[in-house]
C-alpha cells in the first residue's frame, strides 16, 4: 500500500494568519452510549485525555477526543494508529450497541496559526468567537461559508479546523481568502 495522501497536503498561505494544510490524521467516529463507563474508558485510553463534556474537545498533540453529539465522540490518533485503535474499540465494546467507523480519509485538517484566527473564522462562521465566548477546550460544529466544518483551539493562538475531504480545497481557499483580506480589528486588538 502507498502512503496515504491528504487532500490538501502541505499547502500554506502566509497572511496575518497562517493557513496550513495538514497531513492525514487518524479519526474514528464512535457512536454509542456516552455515559457508559466502558465506552469512556476505551476512548480515554486510546486518546490519552479526559472524556470531554458536551461542546468540548480535549486534544493534546495528535491525539484527542471531541464531543460531536449526545451519542457521538470523535477519537483523534496518529494516522498510522487508526487500525489498531479500531481493533481496541471492537474488543472493548463487543456485545454492546455501538458503532466505530474509520473516517480518517474522509476528513481534511487545516491549522490557523496566529492571534487573528478568531477573525478569520468569524468572517465565515455564524459563531460568537469573542474570547469570552470561545476558548481552548471548546469545540464547535458549524458552517464555514457554504460547507459543514468543526473547529477547536489547540492553544490561544491556534485553531484546528476539520471538514470533509471533498471540499478541502474550498475550505483551504476560503480560509486563505479571509486571511489575505487582513484583520478586522474587532475580536483581536
Amino acid at each position: 500500500m502507498s502512503d496515504a495522501i491528504s487532500p490538501i497536503g502541505d499547502r500554506v498561505t502566509e497572511a496575518f494568519v497562517t493557513v496550513r494544510g495538514m497531513g492525514p490524521r487518524g479519526m474514528i467516529t464512535v457512536r454509542g452510549d456516552l455515559s457508559s463507563s466502558k465506552l469512556k474508558a476505551v476512548c480515554t485510553g486510546l486518546a490519552g485525555v479526559d472524556f470531554p463534556k458536551a461542546g468540548h474537545a480535549n486534544c493534546v498533540g495528535e491525539k484527542g477526543l471531541c464531543w460531536m453529539s449526545p451519542d457521538e465522540v470523535l477519537i483523534l490518533v496518529p494516522y498510522d494508529q487508526t487500525a489498531a485503535a479500531l481493533k481496541t474499540l471492537e474488543q472493548a465494546l463487543a456485545g454492546t450497541h455501538y458503532m466505530a467507523a474509520n473516517v480518517s480519509d474522509a476528513r481534511a485538517l487545516i491549522l490557523l496559526e496566529g492571534a487573528g484566527g478568531r477573525e478569520v473564522l468569524a468572517k465565515l462562521a455564524p459563531v460568537d468567537l469573542h474570547p469570552d465566548s470561545f476558548g481552548p477546550g471548546q469545540f464547535r460544529r458549524t458552517r464555514l461559508g457554504q460547507i459543514a466544518a468543526a473547529f477547536w483551539m489547540r492553544d490561544s493562538e491556534t485553531f484546528e479546523v476539520i471538514c470533509f475531504r471533498s471540499v478541502a480545497d474550498y475550505a483551504f481557499d476560503l480560509l486563505s481568502a479571509s486571511a489575505k483580506e487582513g484583520p478586522v480589528g474587532y475580536l483581536v486588538p
Partner: peptide
C-alpha cells in the same frame, strides 16, 4: 442536545 445557540443558517 448540545446547548449551542444556533443561527438559522
Amino acid at each position: 442536545y448540545c446547548g449551542v445557540h444556533a443561527d438559522e443558517t
